[in-house]
Simulated scan of single mutants.
Amino acid sequence: MPHSPAESFPMIAALDLGSNSFHMVLARTSNGEMRILERLGEKVQLAAGIDENRLLDEAAMQRGLDCLRRFAQLVNHLPQGAVRIVGTNALREARNRATFIRLAEEILNHQVEVISGREEARLIYLGVSHTFPGAPGKRLVADIGGGSTEFIIGEGFESQLRESLQMGCVSYTQRFFRDGKITPARYAQAYTAARVELMGIEHGLRRLGWQESIGASGTIRAVGLAIKAGGYGNGEVNGEGLGWLKRKLFKLGDVEKIDIDGVKPDRRGVFPAGLAILEAIFDALELQSMTHSEGALREGVLYDLLGRHHDEDVRDRSLSFLMERYHVDTEQAARVEAKALEAFDQVAEAWNLDQDWHRELLAWAARVHEVGLDIATTTTTSTAPT
């Protein structure tokens, strides 16, 4: 669905009605910049309420509507066009979604849009590319949701391939770990089911290739933190850590016994299923590691609302905003940067500073130095005795 840019609204919001969690982000816009004011999220597990006839049960609907009533206090007064609400896999699957959507729109006073899997993938990539530092080359982005998992390969702000598979941490929990018991046999079934799903897209992903892999979901974040707690990494996901974590879950044997740093109590129930899917992704695509991005679907929806799709480095954008906010003398900052880079060029070869990012880092440091001078001057002036 096309959306006109929302830059004219001083406040905008995005709501992500996911299969596992509902999320809301509220932001203020000024001079083309966006500042996050509020982030809210609740585990609703909408997908857990879909029965064999693909009908969303009353209890799941009520959990979702109760959550939206809390969100509504922050968004139902905002004008039309300033809020975008997207529903994902659970609402795509539910045959009676119209009933839930009608009640949700009455609560929120804004339209609810059920997006396709590929549109979800596009928005996820947009959220990642705006919030994760830019790097040359292609990126593989994976997002394990409650009912589906999205894969995107892109470069800069442009996604080149977008896929959505019917596997998620909630739906796989219902299929393989419904009673909370964790056994090697059940885990193997979940893992195999995920590998079968991946067979249809492996070739296309490999054909395009990528230089770095990024995860954009709560599952991937929790796995990375758990691996870090076990001493197998620094927050990234890696093969050795996945193996250690799987063996630990087998020893525990029950989701109620999961007490691992990084795994919140409300994620324990869906954690084994999420881990099985993630291990299948690593093996199918022969990944060595995966870094987590805080930006995902809801951030992508916000940037899409603003109509911001052009290529820009999030660090450059942040520096420009700070320089404007603190009234930095841009001409002086440019002179400092130029002098610093001139000195850099004279010693770069002798000091083995041969990477592009070495020069880039110094340029940013020069600009941050000017921001710091302005802040220090402002602080000194405001605290000086009268």
Rank of each mutant, 00 (worst) to 15 (best):
A72W: 09
A72Y: 07
A72H: 03
L74N: 10
H77R: 09
L78A: 12
L78N: 09
Q80V: 02
Q80A: 05
R84M: 01
I85R: 06
V86E: 08
G87M: 08
A90H: 03
R92M: 12
E93C: 07
A94S: 10
A94G: 10
N96H: 13
R97V: 13
R97S: 10
A98L: 07
A98N: 12
T99W: 10
F100Y: 13
I101P: 04
I101R: 05
R102H: 11
L103W: 05
A104I: 00
A104K: 00
L108A: 07
N109C: 07
H110A: 06
H110N: 02
V114D: 01
G117F: 03
R118L: 07
E119K: 10
E119G: 05
E119H: 15
E120M: 11
A121K: 14
R122W: 02
L123K: 07
L123Y: 10
G127N: 03
G127Y: 04
S129F: 05
H130F: 00
T131G: 08
F132S: 08
G134V: 14
G134F: 10
P136R: 01
K138S: 05
L140T: 06
V141F: 02
A142C: 07
A142P: 02
A142T: 08
D143R: 08
D143T: 03
D143S: 08
I144N: 02
I144T: 13
G146P: 01
G147L: 06
G147C: 07
G147V: 00
S148L: 13
I152P: 06
G154R: 01
G154P: 04
G156L: 06
F157A: 06
E158K: 14
L161W: 14
L161H: 14
L161D: 10
E163R: 10
E163Q: 13
E163P: 00
S164R: 14
L165R: 02
Q166K: 15
Q166L: 11
G168L: 15
C169H: 05
V170K: 07
Y172I: 02
F176E: 05
F177M: 00
P184E: 11
Y187D: 10
Y187S: 11
Y187T: 09
Y187K: 06
Q189R: 07
Y191K: 12
T192F: 01
A193M: 14
A193R: 03
A193N: 04
R195D: 05
R195Y: 02
L198A: 01
M199F: 11
M199G: 11
M199K: 13
G200Q: 04
I201Y: 00
I201E: 05
E202C: 11
L208C: 08
G209K: 00
